[in-house]
Nucleic acid binder design. Structure first.
Lengths: 220, 220
DNA sequence: TGTATTTCTTAACTTAAGTCAACGAATTAG
DNA sequence: CTAATTCGTTGACTTAAGTTAAGAAATACA
């Protein structure tokens, strides 16, 4: 059986629809910005002033399911904050897709080549219609200049993500595929319904057939 | 065969020797600070002013081989910048040590519970006599207040580490134990001589016997 | 709605890692 | 410097994942 044997369709940046630009809009009663603020305030208290700056400067785009946000070999100039939808990061190795991460609501997607001079080693694909805040190095620079305190917020946020990432890699190393699957259904139960199982298998570092067997094994 | 079946000996913080405190010392011709500056300047240009602040505020400690810097269940209030030596991070799972990371010269060790209210899930042990810069949340706060631009440096640094960490976890997921070993000897050749093989096996997510077989297999 | 495609499962077989045990080599400690 | 421990390798056997192939179920879409 072959999975994903058609070449990736490149949609990318240009296929995106700019939903709103906040410089043109009064800032009250709106869902999408509040999601971003809600997320940020998990890590550090946000002042009203900060909130305004973030909202004014940000912009939101909508991507169709199947859109490739980033391709291997291309430069990465965007990072994302997912408001609604699901994005998958994957590599192609020996012609096979290797899923390495799933990102959903309230998660930040920063390609590892983002803002660097090196081309990306991985792809980013929308698994669902996705609504997302989009960041660029230019926007970041502008924001940090306007509001230096944001550096502190970002630092705290990135440090928290880094600690979580370290825990993730530690757990992965220490666990068997079966344990990793049990952990997955425990901590990301919604993803089971949202993404194909062979991508989950790949994410767990195994083949789809093995995941099938594991599922049968644990249903006793 | 049993490895590491004796309980870890707790040395920790208090067994450390404070080598120098820079408030008492003229700041010229010295090795250890330059190492730290050299490291930091990989990520962002360092002004003379910043350099002074960092050097003035920092302090260096020396730890004996076998010292446990952090224990499972304990709060983590220190992070480290290794000037000379080697530190291992490991968990204990079902009575077995699971090595998750090795840190050597010019690497920063930030326990994932550092500065948090949650107890550490892992241990940190010096595999060699180790000379290290030691950071604390208090020191950090002091530095950031004195010199807000440092936030920017740290943010850039942590973002770079995070990207590298993402690459690491991606590679680990995509690769077989054999590939991981080949990758290890390619990118961290010095560690092969410095740390016991069964710890490397654990780091690669396999048992010592399997690593032995892999080594035999690839020597043809 | 029906057909094509993708996705998931099962089976038989292969390969490699885990387990248990033994032994020699290297290292450490007294 | 010797004894004890730790470490690395090997062998025999077990277990689980990879591979190949086929077919059923679900999904997409024309």
């Amino acid at each position: 059986m072959r999975y994903e044997n058609k070449p990736p369709i490149v949609g990318s940046y240009h296929s995106a629809t700019v939903v709103r630009h906040y410089k043109d809009k009064p800032k009250q009663d709106n869902y999408m910005e509040n999601e971003i603020i809600k997320y940020l305030s998990k890590y550090i208290p946000i002042t009203k002033e900060m909130e305004d700056v973030i909202i004014e400067s940000g912009f939101i785009k909508s991507f169709k399911k199947g859109t490739i946000l980033l391709e291997e070999g291309k430069m990465s100039n965007e990072c994302y904050f997912i408001i609604k939808g699901c994005v998958r990061s994957f590599h192609i190795k020996d012609g096979e897709e290797k899923t390495t991460e799933f990102y959903t609501e309230e998660e930040a997607v920063t390609p590892s080549a983002y803002g660097k001079r090196t081309p990306s080693a991985h792809y980013l694909e929308c698994l669902e219609d996705t609504l997302s805040g989009v960041g660029t190095p230019e926007l970041e620079t502008e924001l940090y200049q306007k509001f230096p305190q944001l550096e502190s917020l970002t630092r705290a946020l990135v440090e928290a993500i880094m600690a979580k990432q370290q825990d993730t890699i530690d757990y992965f190393k220490m666990s068997s595929p079966e344990e990793r699957y049990l952990n997955f259904i425990k901590f990301r139960p919604n993803l089971i319904q949202r993404v194909p199982q062979h991508q989950i298998a790949s994410y767990l570092g195994i083949k789809p057939e093995s995941l099938s067997r594991i599922r049968k094994r644990i249903m006793k």
